[in-house]
Structures are given as C-alpha cells and as structure tokens.
C-alpha cells in the first residue's frame, strides 16, 4: 500500500486534557463472551477475579457484561468523543486482558494513525516567525559585501609570524631604551 493510502494525522489531544485536571475518556466497557466455550475462559476468570476491582478504581467508566452463546470473547470500549474500539480478547489469559484494558483506559479515543510530525501547536509563535533577517546585525544593510574584511576568516589569535614580529619589535624598543 502506498504512503498516501495509509491514514495520517498530526498530534492531537482532547481539549488539552491533563493540562489542568484529567478526565478519563473511556466511558463504557462492554464484555461479550461465551459461558461455555474454552476461548472465553480467560475472560470468565478475569470477570470473576479482577473486574470488580477495576470498576471500583474507575468509577467514571460504566461496565457491562453480555453473555453471548458460542461467540468469540471481545470487549467494546466507547469513548467520550463517540469513537468505539472493539478488541478481540478470545484465548487471552486474565493478565493479558488486564494489560489491554489498561491500554483502553488510558487512551484518548482518537484513532491511532501514522503521525506526520511529532510536535504540533495551535497557537503560532509570539516572537514572530523566523526570517533570514532575524538576529542579523543591522549594519549589514549598508555594508559592501565585496569588502575584503567581511570575507576574510575571523580569528582571535595572531599567527606565528605576527607573534614573532611583535616580539622582535618589543626587543628592539628595549635595546633603543638601553642605548639612550
């Protein structure tokens, strides 16, 4: 499949959730499983042992249990933004189901797609957008670019020849003072 056919989007968050207080976006969980078949055994165990704890810890999430004869076990998660995610939990043990429920609980409900960029902002820069002339010395406006001083290498230290010449000059001055 080509890159254009794969859905893609920018990074989003639901109404800046978590910037002030956090609202769990998972609203409803519906377990659908079979009472007799082996594939639903892990789900049955989970419901018996852990589901009450889960429900107590997350009072904002409604939990429904629907026995469905000879169906594969699955959990349907409904989010605040109206999205629905169906997760197949057939033939999974309670530990794995717990991990998948944690995944659904912490999700924002926004569809999982390829991200075009890892950062996004709704408000443009306050400083102003960068241009080639930001942080440039204003003297550049009137300077002549064919000037040799602008094109030459910038250096802090003197060259060895210049140091030598300076030394010789100092020595000569000293000698002159001695003779006078």
């Amino acid at each position: 499949m080509s890159g254009r056919a794969i859905p893609s989007d920018f990074v989003k968050s639901v109404l800046q959730n978590g910037a002030g207080r956090y609202v769990c976006q998972l609203q409803r969980l519906t377990f659908k499983f079979c009472k007799s078949s082996g594939g639903s055994r892990g789900t049955r165990d989970y419901i018996e042992k852990h589901l009450i704890d889960f429900s107590r810890e997350n009072p904002g999430t409604a939990v429904y249990i629907q026995p469905r004869r000879h169906h594969t076990a699955r959990v349907v998660a409904e989010f605040l933004n109206g999205n629905t995610v169906v997760k197949n939990i057939n033939c999974l043990n309670p530990d794995d189901i717990m991990k998948w429920l944690e995944h659904l609980r912490t999700r924002s409900g926004i569809e999982i797609v390829r991200l075009r960029k890892s950062q996004h902002t709704d408000s443009p820069s306050i400083q102003g957008v960068w241009t080639p002339w930001t942080n440039k010395d204003s003297s550049m406006n009137i300077s002549d670019y064919t000037d040799k001083k602008l094109l030459e290498m910038k250096r802090d230290e003197l060259t060895a020849t210049e140091k030598l010449l300076e030394l010789a000059k100092n020595l000569r001055e000293k000698d002159m003072k001695k003779t006078t």
Partner: peptide
C-alpha cells in the same frame, strides 16, 4: 571578481573564508 551586476545586487550576506590567506 567580475560578477554580473544582476547577480551581485541580490547578495545580502557573505560567508567567511574557512582558512587564513597567507601573505
């Protein structure tokens, strides 16, 4: 050093030389 006038008037900055030119 002879550069056409229409190119030279676009120039708005210069790159410094990476090496020191000897005398």
């Amino acid at each position: 050093e002879s550069v056409p006038e229409d190119l030279l008037k676009n120039v708005s900055d210069c790159i410094r030389q990476p090496m020191l030119a000897p005398k």
